[in-house]
Computed example of a mutant assay.
Amino acid sequence: MPERLDELAPADWWRPRFSHPRVGAVMTARSGGVSQPPFDAFNLRDGLGDDPVAVAANRALLQEIVGRPTRLLSQVHGVAVHLLESMAEPPATPPVADAVVTASSAVACEIQVADCLPVLFAHVGGRAVGAAHAGWRGLAGGVLEATLAHVRALADASAGDIECWLGPCIGPTRFEVGADVLLAFGASPEQPGACFRPARPGKWLADLPALARQRLAAAGVQQMAGNSGAPDWCTLGHPQRCFSYRHAPRTGRMAALVWLR
């Protein structure tokens, strides 16, 4: 199926670039769909209060843009990784997982976010791809390391042969957390480390993309692009472009996708 990303996708969607021409990727923004407020306009998740007909129309357009079907996950802030196979029938209910990988060109990996960090993975030789949903719980639990291991296994490759792209998420000047989050990452109020800054008594500002980069680097990933932690990447700071749960809990979901041509 031909890909129509440049023709159909709105200009403010993100277009991750990977080194191998076989790898395609995109991340949606709020624009381009038919959902009405507060889900305007390109909400991709049903069951949030949006009109199911509008969600179905948005999902149909997404599939047309990426040129292949995707499979929804039931995301629970965990570390499970789902393998997409080209000939597998869609399950009756979405699998419970927070990451997805494939070596097939017949399907696209999709994860959804509205403040959490999306991370896309691709083998430099174009043999496998993956996508992970990394909120702080999944990140601390090892969802990125689990996804990396699955992509490496599919591609029969080392960690140094895997590229990662970090998408927009709640930024390091807006993500206020408690001591439980510090402890989950092996830090403490007395020694918070470089990824946490004091905000007010009992609260710290967490740098989610920096934590992700730190963990990916420790796992052997050398090539990372995308979210630098700069204000332009903050979902909470750009509610007109991004769905943000912290801005408005009744909101839609964006999707980050990666596939093999």
Rank of each mutant, 00 (worst) to 15 (best):
V55S: 10
T173W: 07
E89S: 14
G186D: 10
E110R: 15
L5K: 11
L62W: 03
V119P: 02
S104F: 06
L154H: 02
A149E: 13
G186S: 12
R200K: 13
G24E: 09
A11P: 04
G171W: 01
S86R: 14
P52D: 09
V177R: 11
D180N: 13
R71G: 03
L257F: 04
V66D: 00
E85S: 14
M27D: 05
T93I: 14
G125E: 14
A134G: 07
W136Q: 06
R127K: 09
A134M: 08
N43E: 10
A122I: 12
A149F: 02
G142H: 04
R246V: 11
T235W: 01
V79C: 12
E190A: 15
C242H: 12
M254K: 05
I65L: 12
C109P: 05
P192W: 04
A206W: 06
P189G: 04
V124I: 15
E7L: 14
F185D: 00
R246W: 13
P95E: 02
V258L: 10
G49S: 05
F243P: 05
T93L: 15
V151K: 05
V181P: 01
V34R: 13
V100L: 01
V101R: 04
I111V: 15
G24Q: 08
G24S: 12
L139V: 11
A60D: 11
V55L: 12
H150E: 15
A153L: 14
G202S: 06
I65W: 01
D232Q: 13
D6Q: 04
A114Y: 03
V129C: 09
A25G: 05
L117N: 11
S74V: 13
P16W: 00
S35D: 05
L120F: 03
G220W: 04
C234W: 02
S228F: 08
L260P: 05
Q191S: 15
P172K: 09
R253D: 14
W233N: 04
P95N: 11
H133D: 01
A248Q: 14
T28A: 07
C195E: 13
V76C: 08
P168W: 02
S104H: 03
A41T: 15
G193P: 11
F243A: 09
A146H: 08
G138T: 07
V177L: 11
L139K: 07
P38A: 06
A60I: 07
E163P: 07
V101W: 01
A219I: 08
E176P: 06
T173I: 09
S19A: 14
W233D: 06
G160E: 10
A248T: 05
G237E: 01
D232W: 01
V96S: 13
Y245L: 12
V26I: 15
A179G: 00
Q222V: 15
